[in-house]
Write a protein that binds this DNA or RNA. Structure first.
Lengths: 161, 161
DNA sequence: GCTTGACCTTCCCGTCATGGGAAGGGGGAA
DNA sequence: TTCCCCCTTCCCATGACGGGAAGGTCAAGC
């Protein structure tokens, strides 16, 4: 089974397969004489595991831990549960953050006429005009979570500085 | 007012200030003889506008549009509202996606004993063992949204391939 | 046997919005 | 003058990939 077939069978792209190998998430695949990577049915199972974990939003680093536990007969389910709970907590925090943003913007958009005239509560809010409109937009709900996996890519919470 | 003071006054870091200038989100700042950037109170107002927009999760590109409209006396609030609604829709989609993940994982974690024993419903689910446990994990709720700003960084929805 | 085209290989670049840090120069106070 | 903090530009890293170039391989069809 070459890389394309393994990709089709697992739902992981060939790019990701090579990437996962490069970062050591999966072991180095065997090679044919011509240098083509070779995969087994067992490899495909692991890849499917990884893909499902990604679908649930888990980071590569947590998946690395989970794959290790999965293949460890001596594992304790407590470790698996702890990793999962950590991820759930991050999802929850992100949901709360996005929901606050959505609610604020929803409210502002609803108050906007949306016609040809320039007057606009959305811009007034962004302007920071605290006097003319009550600024109900919530202060950031979660502080001091730098380097947080779920938002490391998005907004380092540059706030404080 | 030099860059450090403008940063302190606006809540935008010096790094971001230089970055915003480099991508043309803000005009090139004036310079002192020594080459230091100089900012005015008006500049700080713009920066605060940008920071508030970022706090609401808007992308730089949308902020670019909003700043343009903000400074345009001939603007129509309809344009502002449309941009905002687009962003709200993306937030909503992301919230739905994360909530589905959270609910699935919450359920699996709740079913996990979390003790020293290896048996674990979480791993069984990731294994894809459809026979032993009913797999209630939702299929991806939103398809075909490649290049979507709110998730471009996270999971290119590599699914289909 | 040769061509064609689909596949494979490695390598580098771009994403998005930042932070970190190096190397070098400026500026005002003690 | 010395000191320290500020400023400058430049490059690198992040997470988890996708795109694409340049070149090698393989199987099918003629």
């Amino acid at each position: 089974m070459n890389i394309g077939q393994a990709a089709a069978a697992s739902g992981v792209s060939t790019k990701m397969l090579r990437y996962y190998e490069s970062i050591g998430l999966i072991p180095k695949a065997g090679r044919t004489e011509a240098g083509y990577r070779v995969y087994s049915g067992t490899d495909v199972n692991t890849l499917r595991f990884i893909r499902r974990a990604r679908d649930l939003g888990l980071s590569i680093e947590r998946i690395r831990l989970l794959v290790g536990l999965w293949q460890d007969r001596e594992r304790s389910s407590g470790d698996v549960k702890r990793i999962t709970e950590e991820h759930v907590a991050e999802l929850e925090a992100k949901i709360v953050e996005l929901t606050a943003m959505r609610d604020s913007l929803r409210e502002l958009a609803d108050a906007c006429h949306g016609d040809h005239r320039p007057e606009c509560p959305i811009l007034r809010d962004l302007e920071g005009d605290v006097d003319r409109t009550a600024r109900r937009r919530a202060e950031p709900l979660v502080r001091e979570r730098r380097g947080h996996p779920l938002e490391a890519h998005r907004r380092g919470h540059h706030h404080g500085a």
